[in-house]
Amino acid sequence: MEKGAINRPASQTQSEQTSTSDLRTALPQPLSPGDVAGPSARSESEQQTLTDIRDAIAECDTLRLDPSLPEADRRDMDAAVLTLRNLERELIEATSETLLDRLEAASKPLEDLARDIRTRVTAMNAPAKALEHFKRLASLATRILREAGRW
């Protein structure tokens, strides 16, 4: 691997002096839930932004790990990449929440059905449980009669 370069597919290189604010404005801003027409449009934007953030982080890494970069600039680039990492985390969280909401909606109908089945199973077990008590009583009576016989 070339010194200081990140092994990535070929991409356009930006100017070396990319500031934090330039990086933020260069990316499509993450959309809030109320901004778009529907969930599919929002998710497509989230996916595009996730890819863009990944590319932006990789480009930032190429710049900040350049051996010829002064140390002060390298620290500035560290701050910039932390901002991108935070954006990445927010987006992953938003995407996960979308999936969780769908999972919750999918699971609700089966809860009632499962509860109904468990009630039936309890009812089917009831006669056996009742007879178990009677069996214990009979065992107790046997023991009592055995002891009575010993006197």
Binding site: M1, I6, N7, R8, S43, E44, E46, Q47, L50, T51, R54, I57, A58, D61, L65, E88, I92, T95, S96, T98, L99, R102
Partner: peptide
């Protein structure tokens, strides 16, 4: 879903990028 697909793809590619860095 596209969301799950993207999350999986993101982890696969980001792992390579992060280790390279």
């Amino acid at each position: 879903s596209d969301e799950m697909d993207e999350l999986i793809r993101h982890e696969r590619e980001s792992l390579r990028d992060n280790y390279a860095a």
